[in-house]
């Protein structure tokens, strides 16, 4: 009746923690052992239930704010030490040089089309991202089907954001919602990455295309900004920059 495997290797197998040879050995055992097959199905059902039921609890926005305030109090202000006269002179000289270069470089920068800043601030962006993570705020239309999310936006916005699912690349589309950024309505596409969410804000722009800019960082969140084919994009998340960049490139293509 009792099977040694049931209580040992089965859980390692379920969790993908067995090495290749033990994993193969367990699979061979599974073929002939009804008890273990059934137990494995039961465990899988339990896991699916745990992961589907939304048991993961997110902190309220106020906690992050409280912690930041406490961190501010626990961080040393930049020391106001005495600065020698020669350093003042060096600094003044450096400012003059920079001013001179900017003066000459300014028209050039405009001529080659130095990218205009996005029409919203980093604070607005991060606030919108954090708000979306509060219970019930993430999506207005929850669907992993790009053909369901795209038409949902039409009629609600005066532009059609490109909607694509990247589940095969590890970024499943979770849904979409409307949000307000910099005082205007924007589309937001929500992607999942393991247990985390990535908000991709999309709005139309008249500015020319840009590459994906270097990441911005604030309050522990990172974002990437770029413009492509008349749309302005900003992807925000707490996932690693590498993951965020991967998604940005998928969207960019």
């Amino acid at each position: 009746m009792s099977c040694d495997y049931t209580r040992a290797a089965l859980h390692g197998y379920l969790d993908g923690e067995l090495d290749a040879s033990r994993s193969a050995e367990f699979e061979r055992h599974l073929v002939g052992c009804r008890e273990c097959s059934k137990e494995l199905e039961t465990e899988k059902a339990l896991r699916a239930g745990l992961q589907r039921s939304g048991l993961y609890e997110h902190p309220p926005l106020s906690l992050r704010k409280k912690i930041r305030a406490e961190l501010d109090a626990a961080t040393a202000a930049p020391a106001a030490r005495k600065i020698p006269v020669w350093q003042w002179l060096a600094a003044a000289a450096a400012i003059l040089v920079v001013a001179a270069i900017s003066w000459y470089a300014w028209p050039l920068r405009n001529a080659i089309g130095g990218a205009a800043p996005p029409p919203f601030t980093a604070a607005e962006l991060i606030d919108a991202h954090i708000r979306s993570l509060q219970p019930g705020h993430l999506t207005d239309v929850a669907s992993t089907d790009q053909h369901a999310v795209k038409p949902w936006f039409s009629g609600k916005l005066d532009f059609a954001p490109p909607v694509k699912d990247f589940a095969e690349d590890g970024f499943p589309l979770v849904g979409g919602r409307l949000d307000v950024l910099g005082g205007r309505n924007v589309a937001v596409l929500v992607y999942g990455r393991r247990k985390h969410y990535i908000n991709v804000f999309v709005l139309p722009t008249k500015e020319p295309d840009t590459p994906i800019h270097p990441p911005g960082l604030r309050q522990g969140y990172q974002w990437l900004h770029w413009r492509h084919q008349g749309m302005e994009y900003c992807a925000v998340s707490d996932v690693s920059v590498a993951d965020l960049h991967e998604l940005a490139q998928l969207i960019y293509q």
Partner: peptide, 18 residues
């Protein structure tokens, strides 16, 4: 901790507040 360490903490640790 100073400002640099604070920035490093924000980047490495704070994303795991959830």
């Amino acid at each position: 901790l100073d400002v640099d360490e604070r920035a490093r903490f924000e980047q490495l640790v704070l994303p795991h507040l959830d």
